[in-house]
Design a protein around this nucleic acid. Structure first.
Lengths: 193, 193
DNA sequence: TAATTTAGCTAACGAACGTTAGGTAAGTTA
DNA sequence: TAACTTACCTAACGTTCGTTAGCTAAATTA
């Protein structure tokens, strides 16, 4: 990440780890790679962290916190379509603000060890349920058509999560534009009315 | 995959590798893990393959072949919306027929070494262009609304590619149903007309 | 049947892995 | 100033990594 010089050592390690874990994956990144990126000896990392997995753990759970915080800012009075729009834009904004960390959150969580792995999966399930509730409210209110939620829900998440895996230029599209386009695609479809 | 007993050794190695690379990732799967899954000694693998990367290479390019074959079966006379439907269902069918291998294709290709990595990326770009051409034909014909293709195209691919990463029950939904639901979502949207 | 190939084995190579032990020199606190 | 803490170092630990060398016994071919 940028502005590394303003971070303390712990922060530098986390930032470098986010970047390396994103680019090469957790398993293919060695502690020696990480130490080199930070500019210290491998053994010195252990003055600041307790294990390789602990770095991954902090990245994953910190991202989870941010996704939940964003959900809490949705207008509870708005109609389902409007709530969905806010949730989509919020989700994408969190990804965009944490380019490296969100890729790690999305792809590398499986290298968490128990009990963290179980806790993580549980949080993820809760988060998905919040989106499901919005979609079902839309159906109950007659605003959304009846569709198989087992398909629509993962499709929505896949659509929101693509942002991290593309090259920088594409990801520089403003989150509001990406979010609104995906939302319009989902609500109105490609076809002219 | 099932029916291992009907495969020759090379085929068994490929099937086991597809499964392990999907479940743990390429980097976190050792040749000793692979040998154990096949039931032979690690060194014996090298009677059938030339390197760990060569296994990955065969998986990735074999999947690429299948995706392109599927595209060639689309009805060139049909209108863009119909062509899109066929392309989506075809893409998802290929994934479904190759549950493990498609996950490897989608996630582990970055561990290819040059020049295979470059060749792979190029094939991928070509494949995406074929979908883009269908969408743009729909816009040119006035059937699809004008939307930012830099967003719509990756959204479409993300939507099609989720199938592999979910637990078995969800993936047992028939490809036609998944494909048609995603297609309807894209063309008509969630909202009632 | 003799010669060759195939498919596996044991053993081991050098390199890289995550991590720990133990020390040093500078900065901080009592 | 003396005691302690912090942030790093060098050195090395035991393990695992992908892969090779060299062998054997069975299957195949001449």
């Amino acid at each position: 990440m940028a502005l590394t010089q303003t971070l303390d050592r712990k922060g530098q390690i986390q930032a470098a780890a986010q970047n390396l874990f994103r680019e090469r994956g957790f398993a293919a990144t060695s502690m020696r790679d990480l130490a080199k990126a930070v500019g210290i000896e491998p053994a010195s990392l252990y003055s600041h962290i307790t294990s390789k997995e602990s770095i991954l753990r902090e990245i994953c759970f910190h991202m989870a916190d941010q996704f939940f915080e964003q959900l809490d800012q949705i207008d509870g009075q708005a109609n389902p379509a409007e709530q969905l729009k806010q949730a989509i834009i919020g989700h994408i904004s969190v990804i965009r603000k944490n380019y490296d960390a969100s890729a790690v959150f999305l792809h590398e969580w499986r290298f968490l060890e128990e009990p963290n792995l179980g806790r993580f999966k549980s949080l993820r399930r809760d988060y998905e349920q919040r989106f499901r509730a919005i979609l079902e409210a839309g159906q109950a209110a007659g605003q959304f058509r009846q569709m198989n939620m087992k398909i629509v829900l993962p499709t929505l998440f896949s659509s929101m999560n693509w942002a991290y895996e593309h090259v920088k230029p594409a990801t520089l599209l403003p989150p509001e534009e990406v979010g609104e386009t995906i939302w319009r695609l989902f609500v109105q479809g490609l076809e002219h009315k």
